[in-house]
Simulated assay, not measured.
Amino acid sequence: MNLINRFVPKNDKLQLLHTDPTLTDAMSERLISWFPKIPREYVVVCIGTDRSTGDALGPLTGSFFSEMKPKHINVYGTLADPVHAINLEDHIKLINAQHKEAFIIAVDASLGKMTSVGSIISDVGSLRPGAALNKNLPSVGDIHITGVVNISGFMEYSILQNTRLSLVVDMAKSIAALLEALDQQLTYNRPLPAIIASNQKRNRGVEA
């Protein structure tokens, strides 16, 4: 167990390898700490395209998570219906129309240092899709999850195109499991403190 992560302030980003056995528990706890105390609708926007192996992280994650049939998180961005550079603005308008004041989790692939490849990063605030490729796209998300699929610094478009699919699939499965853990802790009708109180009562043998 990576005990160091327990001492990272909740407002700081968290970065773990997708193979880290503590990832789901540690990162879901961090993400939940950033969720609003008053319940809202929850949306995950998985950004990317199936036309590039590296950039397929988002739609793969969306497809894997959709197959888990989440109860409280609405999913946008799958292999069948990807959210990418061309239709991103349209999807943002659609989400704003269908989910008033939704709390949005953005998921996207990223490039980074060699030592960070295979890492999953969660952080507060929006992300800028396509920034590594110098694309001017709107920012998305109240919080975000990114997966470092390959190295940055040279011919980024080619690097994304030639990323190993097996790594991207494994990372997408890890992020989908993380999102499932979040979904299981959420309810649209009760704020998060009520969930905690309910769990405490249940542990004491009291009817919630």
Rank of each mutant, 00 (worst) to 15 (best):
M1G: 05
L3M: 14
N5I: 01
F7A: 12
F7V: 04
N11F: 04
L14V: 04
L16K: 13
H18N: 11
D20M: 06
A26I: 05
A26G: 01
L31C: 05
S33I: 02
S33T: 09
P36A: 11
V43D: 09
V43L: 02
V45F: 13
D50F: 04
D50T: 00
R51D: 08
G54M: 09
A56R: 13
L57V: 02
G58C: 05
P59G: 04
L60W: 14
S63N: 08
M68L: 15
I73K: 15
N74G: 00
T78G: 02
D81Q: 13
P82N: 12
P82W: 14
N87S: 08
L88R: 15
L94G: 00
L94A: 12
Q98S: 09
K100R: 13
V107T: 07
V107H: 10
D108H: 06
T115K: 14
V117Y: 02
S119N: 13
I120F: 10
S122W: 07
D123Y: 14
V124E: 14
V124K: 15
L127K: 15
R128Q: 11
P129R: 15
A131Y: 14
A132I: 03
N136P: 00
L137P: 00
T146V: 04
V148C: 06
V148G: 01
N150Q: 13
S152I: 07
G153C: 03
Y157C: 02
L160D: 10
N162P: 00
N162T: 06
T163C: 02
L165E: 12
L167Y: 14
V169R: 15
M171H: 08
M171Y: 10
K173C: 02
I175A: 05
A177L: 07
Q184F: 03
Q184H: 11
L186T: 08
L186M: 08
T187G: 04
L192G: 01
P193K: 01
A194N: 12
A194I: 08
I196D: 01
I196T: 06
A197E: 07
R202D: 10
V206K: 01
